Amino acid sequence: MNQRTTSPTRRPRVRIDAAAAGLRLAIVIVAVVAAFPLVWMVLSSFKTPAESMQVPPVWLPATPSLDAYSEVADVINAGRSFWNSAVIATVTTAGILITSLMAGYAFAKYRFRGRDALFAVLIATMFLPPIVTLIPLYRLVTAIGLNASLLGVIVPHLANAFGIFLMRQFIAGVPDDLIDAARVDGASELRIVFSVVAPSVVPALAALTLFAFVYHWNTYLWPLTVLQGNSDDYPIVISLSRLLSYNRGAMNTHLVMAGATLAVLPPLVMFVLLQRFFVDSIVSSGVKG
């Protein structure tokens, strides 16, 4: 009796390999397109004024120079501006982490009347454009005497609806038995939040740190509104606007690019440091969801 043997076909494997190659090619193309403005900005910062204005554009500087960076430091007092941005971004981010962790814990693990309604109102505030709350916040800051100061920039943003929502979603996945065991051992609620819950949601905290730091490092409209008449406390993103009017006749694009390169370095370093935790938070939310 003859038995027919069927040889395995290679066609499905070829299709899978082609799909994987196409996906990799698409990722490379998207990455190149996304990175192009950053690369162009850095290269332009090393150009001479003539090269920065040349048409057609010069891709690589013939003689790279750091003169633009030293000139930027003289025009906008970069050291003071960087310090102001660091204070605003760091203090605001720390406040957001603390308030979001504590409020998220309360919404996730406490049962109290009106909890769901209060959380719904909190979520609704996320849909308000920042421009809508600009004038009320400014009037409030002025009324308590914090206008024209860094505290006026920082205080209204020490709590964040998105941060509370994010932490609530992750803390809800922390086992209740773990929290009950800490209570049995005599731990206070604050001790439970910072010693038990916080280590369990490190990826979420890292992602929130990245979001908050980058946002408040790059924020422009609110500091410009609060710090009217106090240019000494301007953050770097506002100080960079002075480069656009500096020597406008020559249109020193390389100065603007040098200033932008300096301004983007801290958020970029923050992303590199927290990249692994950020990816873990996305994977964890995908598994839970």
Rank of each mutant, 00 (worst) to 15 (best):
P8E: 08
T9Q: 14
R10Q: 03
V14G: 08
R15V: 11
A26Y: 10
I29R: 07
A31E: 09
A34L: 05
A35C: 04
A35G: 02
P57K: 11
P57Q: 13
T63Q: 14
D67N: 13
S70V: 05
S70L: 10
E71N: 12
V72W: 02
A73Y: 00
N77I: 00
R80M: 11
I88P: 04
I98W: 04
Y105F: 10
K109S: 04
D116W: 08
D116T: 03
F119P: 09
V121H: 09
I123P: 10
F127M: 13
P130A: 11
P130Q: 12
T133C: 09
L134W: 07
L134N: 09
I135R: 07
I135V: 15
L137P: 04
L137M: 12
T142L: 07
T142H: 10
A143S: 14
L150N: 09
H157N: 07
A159V: 09
N160W: 13
F170M: 13
D176R: 12
D176N: 14
L178W: 09
D180Y: 10
V184M: 11
G186L: 02
L190V: 08
A198S: 05
V202S: 12
L208Q: 06
T209V: 01
L210T: 15
F213M: 10
Y215W: 13
H216V: 03
N218R: 01
L221R: 14
L224I: 10
N230A: 11
I236Q: 12
I236N: 06
V237C: 07
R242Q: 11
S245A: 12
M251I: 00
H254M: 10
H254F: 07
L255Y: 10
M257K: 01
G259E: 05
A263W: 10
A263D: 05
P267V: 02
L273V: 15
V279S: 00
V283K: 11
S285A: 15
V287K: 09
K288V: 15
